[in-house]
């Protein structure tokens, strides 16, 4: 049992100097970054890290763990689901504003291009990814069968 609060350890000097130097630059730019709607900008900056670490990452990690649990004992096809799902999810994450249609009106008005079809194309790519993955799985299984028999 600790008998008293441990005295703070300073740590080694090189990292300390590097960090103080870095903070000076961050502060110089940060003051300028926050020169505006600073509560919202701070929220976006810190919130981006928190939402990623405490929402997005746990969500996809839990989905992956669920997949591994469901396919227990049939590890051969875990990756044939995991890979196309991850790639499709990645495209959805990056192009969410266009795929969801939330910027459709502005996009069409600004660019004179059609904003339709992003969701359909994403679904088609997703279908193709799972399709290719399924074919590869079938080929693998087919190749293994004769040897096993």
């Amino acid at each position: 049992m600790p008998e008293r609060m441990p005295r703070p350890v300073p740590g080694s000097p090189f990292p300390l100097l590097v960090l103080l130097c870095s903070f000076a630059l961050c502060a110089y730019a940060g003051v300028r970054l926050l020169d505006g709607d600073w509560p919202m900008i701070t929220l976006w900056f810190v919130g981006a890290a928190l939402v990623h670490d405490l929402v997005l990452l746990p969500l996809y990690a839990a989905a992956d763990r669920a997949l591994v649990t469901v396919t227990a004992g049939r590890a051969a096809w875990v990756n044939h689901v995991r890979v196309p799902a991850a790639l499709s999810g990645l495209l959805l994450l990056v192009w969410f504003p266009l795929i969801s249609g939330r910027v459709s009106q502005r996009y069409a008005a600004v660019t004179a291009l059609s904003a339709d079809g992003f969701a359909a194309r994403w679904l088609l790519i997703t279908a193709a990814l799972f399709g290719v993955s399924a074919v590869l799985f079938a080929v693998r299984v087919g190749r293994r069968r004769p040897g096993a028999g």
Binding site: C21, A29, G30
Partner: peptide
């Protein structure tokens, strides 16, 4: 978001992305 014309970020893109880059780069250097 900016390349998809989804201007939900809190302010004008130019200062946010420019000063944000320098804050990030300061931490990146360390």
């Amino acid at each position: 978001l900016n390349i998809q014309l989804d201007y939900v970020f809190p302010g004008s893109f130019y200062p946010l992305h420019f000063y944000g880059a320098w804050v990030f780069f300061g931490a990146f250097l360390a």
